[in-house]
Write a protein that binds this DNA or RNA. Structure first.
Length: 426
RNA sequence: GGAGAGGUGGCCGAGUUGGUUGAAGGCGCUCGACUCGAAAUCGAGUAGGCAAGUGAGAGCUUGCCUCGUGGGUUCGAAUCCCACCCUCUCCGCCA
């Protein structure tokens, strides 16, 4: 949610900013119109209420003095009728205003490159040299099935397409990656580990911006609960409605969770393999930062995520998303893209964003500064990193001609010293 | 799921014969005094949201709303009534 008073005073700037992110301008105009009505009504109602409150006080005083309050009561009666009518109107219009406001996206930070789509994202840096193969590198689904660790058929049987079963050393590798990432971020980068619920209520989904706009992307359960699409949702909302201490900022959390996404609208995309699943594991980095230093915190968060790929020896690049490719709630986003030999290109494995106070407003997360003033914090998060895609990247980047896969050095202590995955059928 | 207790400001905690109580007191925090400095002590200040006015601005002034949430009763509710949510204790069930 944007700072509405500020929006009202900077309409033109907001209009232009929304344009750069391909957001239609009509919504803004609608909200502005509703807001005009809302404020007019509130002024009117407030004045009437002030009058009525004063008269009510007089009734008390009147009775104390032993006088007859009847004339006052008649006057109050008349005002009360008007108030009730206007108050109902005001409430309705406030509801409409708030609901519309929830659909207005965040504005891009001024450092975000302007562009219409993905193609105009800007590469910031590269790390690692894609390996030169003396054979044609195979896709991970072939490697994984041959190793007997990836089972797509049974995933589809017990659930549906886009679900995968990991067997034996594949399951172990998944678990090893999670532990490796958690240990790295807690021990080397100073994050506090959290294990949050995988189901959250509607209010929580609204807090981080998934609802009401992206209802179709989520799985919904009974009892006002929804499956989380990312740890960002429960963990950011951990501090919803709270006032944090300025000296505690930034708070840095790392959480492993499973993530659930319906992937509605991505039919036909990445249908094979592990790239796009309805359920996947992710280790997520989150920060609650002081507004003055949130962009420095974003840079350090990106570096923390990059370290995972560097230690695993996976070549990647960092991309700054352009205004047109920015997510609904983000003010600025860097994607980490890992090299996939079978596709001969980089694919997203992490997305790191500063949401500024957009989520903090929705979830009401604030801090008290030394001067006693209360202000919204900035929230940030980024994958550190997506586990399934990391596993797939390892299979592809570390594959050998004979079908074996070398386990990256840093993972071996998490895998009982295992150095090589070998096809069981050999 | 059943029975009981409870949800008040950053925190703790008063406040149920409805009426200057948006809220005593304490802690914490801020400023000031004392001090070379600090501690202790003393004094002052200290909820949030919305709207309007004023100011270049930090801010200041006024009004409205908020004592879990939403309704209701009443001229007037933290205080009375109803529904829901949450916490705690006991019982049941359960990994």
């Amino acid at each position: 949610m944007l700072d509405w008073k500020w929006v009202r005073e900077n309409k033109d700037f907001v209009r232009r900013a929304l344009e750069t992110r391909n957001s239609s301008p009509e919504l803004l105009e609608e909200i502005l119109a509703v807001d005009e009505k809302r404020r007019g009504l509130q002024r009117e109602v407030d004045e009437l209420k002030a009058k009525k409150n004063q008269l009510s006080k007089n009734v008390g005083a009147c009775k104390k003095e032993g006088k007859d309050p009847a004339p006052l009561l008649r006057e109050i009666e008349g005002i009360a009728v008007t108030i009730e009518k206007l108050d109902r109107e005001l409430k309705e219009i406030e509801k409409i205003w708030e609901e519309k406001l929830l659909f207005l996206p965040n504005l891009p930070h001024h450092t975000v490159p302007v562009g219409r789509s993905e193609e105009e994202n800007v590469e910031v840096r590269r790390w690692g040299e894609p390996r030169r193969f003396d054979f044609s590198p195979r896709p991970h689904w072939e490697i994984g099935e041959e190793l007997g660790i990836l089972d797509f058929e049974r995933g589809a049987k017990v659930a549906s397409s886009r679900f995968t079963v990991l067997w034996g050393q594949g399951a172990l590798l998944e678990r090893a990656l999670i532990n490796f990432m958690l240990d790295l971020h807690t021990e080397q980068h100073g994050y506090k580990e959290v294990f949050p619920p995988f189901l959250v209520n509607t209010k929580t989904m609204i807090g981080t911006g998934q609802l009401p706009k992206f209802y179709e992307d989520l799985y919904h359960c009974q009892d006002d609960l929804h499956l989380i699409p990312t740890a960002e949702v429960p963990v950011t909302n951990l501090h919803a409605g709270e006032i944090l201490e300025e000296e505690d900022l930034p708070l840095s959390y790392v959480a492993y969770t499973a993530c659930f996404r319906r992937e509605a609208g991505s039919y036909g995309k990445d249908v094979r393999g592990l790239i796009r699943q309805h359920q996947f594991n992710k280790v997520e980095l989150l920060k609650f930062a002081h507004p003055e230093s949130s962009y420095e915190e974003l840079e350090s968060l990106v570096h923390d995520a990059e370290m995972v790929l560097q230690l695993l020896g996976l070549p990647y690049r960092v991309v700054a998303l352009c205004t047109g490719d920015l997510g609904f709630a983000a003010a600025k986003t860097y994607d980490l893209e890992v090299w996939l030999p079978s596709q001969g290109r980089y694919r997203e494995i992490s997305s790191c964003s500063n949401f500024e106070d957009f989520q903090a407003r929705r979830a009401n997360i604030r801090f008290r500064s030394a001067s006693g003033k209360v202000a919204y914090v900035h929230t940030l998060n980024g994958s550190g990193v997506a586990v399934g895609r990391t596993l797939l990247a390892i299979l592809e980047n570390y594959q050998e001609k004979d079908g074996t896969v070398v386990i990256p050095e840093v993972l071996r202590r998490y895998m009982h010293g295992l150095e090589l995955l070998i096809p069981s059928v050999r």
